[in-house]
Amino acid sequence: MDDAVRLESLTKTYGSGDSAVSALRETSLSFPRGSFTAIMGPSGSGKSTLLQCAAGLDRPTSGRVFIDGQDTSGLNETRLTELRRASTGFIFQSFNLLPSLTAEQNVALPMRLAGRRPPRGAVRQALAQVGLEKKAGSRPSQLSGGQQQRVAIARALVARPAVLFADEPTGALDLSTGRELLVTLRALAGPDGGTPSGPGTDGRVTTTIVMVTHDPNVAAYADRVLFLADGGLVGELLQPTAEAVAARMTHLAVTS
């Protein structure tokens, strides 16, 4: 199967000797192109560490990570940074927008900082994808929390990444606004919702979404939910409902 991200026997250990703590233990996972996966687990289960390693933001102690078909284990920091910029996007719980810049300028900023000019029309296309084409000239203070988070999504999409990582993307939003954001993410996943490959073309880059959340209602928007406990994969739920996810999490809380 064609995977956007693949993890092979991933282990991440912090510290050494008697004080060593294993955040991940021999974990193997794959995220097919166009899929929308939610990752859940009790506090300390390793989900944030998994996300950081899968996105190339942290290196595992052992095992291999493949991003968009590229084995990251042999890459130096420069090449790994280039791969992240070319193939991944990241959405954080905090919006991380610069208040003095417009939405359009915030979206373009990471590419400009990397010394790259956004493709013609790409910034407006990214804003249009999240329904904010009419807010391109607005500053963060003129936008609602949900709109600011959608600007952050557009910023992650402008380089047309193969995979979009999201760490508790609805955590700072109210229920209604969070739901709007999840509908946006749901629409992006898969071949029909991929990011445009260029202005005036029909080609699209299939967008894969990997999201960490603690909320069963949020996880229910995904195609599948992966459950972690004690640094390892302990379950999977396809076509999840909020009730089924909550039941599985309650079981984990009792047994862990």
Rank of each mutant, 00 (worst) to 15 (best):
A103G: 00
P99M: 04
Q129R: 12
P32L: 07
V225C: 11
D2S: 13
L50R: 03
T72L: 12
P191S: 14
T255F: 10
G190N: 14
T201F: 13
S48H: 02
P140I: 03
E82R: 15
R120E: 15
G63Y: 09
L175E: 13
Q239H: 15
D68W: 12
S197C: 15
S9I: 09
T177L: 06
S62R: 15
V151S: 06
S144F: 14
P240F: 04
Q93W: 00
H214W: 04
A114C: 06
R59C: 09
L51S: 02
R139H: 10
S28D: 08
A253L: 05
C53W: 05
R186Q: 15
V212G: 00
R25M: 06
E168C: 04
T81Q: 11
T255S: 14
L57V: 12
V107A: 08
S73E: 05
A4C: 01
E104D: 03
D2I: 10
T184G: 05
A55W: 00
T81R: 12
R117I: 11
A122W: 03
L143M: 14
S94G: 01
L164W: 01
N217W: 06
S73W: 04
V151E: 05
G56T: 13
R186I: 12
G200Y: 14
L226N: 07
T207Y: 02
D167I: 02
T170G: 01
L127E: 02
A189F: 13
A152I: 01
S48F: 05
A162Y: 01
L164H: 00
L164T: 03
A156W: 00
Y221I: 01
F95T: 01
R224F: 03
D71K: 10
E243S: 14
V151G: 00
T37F: 02
H251I: 07
P118E: 10
S35N: 07
R204Q: 10
Q239R: 14
P161R: 06
E77P: 09
M111Q: 15
G41I: 08
E26L: 12
V151F: 08
G137W: 00
S138Q: 08
E236L: 07
E133D: 11
N106P: 05
I91E: 03
R139V: 06
A166Y: 02
L182S: 08
P110E: 05
L97A: 09
A128H: 07
L109K: 08
L238R: 13
L51N: 05
A159I: 06
L51C: 05
I67G: 09
G137M: 03
V163H: 05
A154F: 03
A229I: 02
Y221F: 15
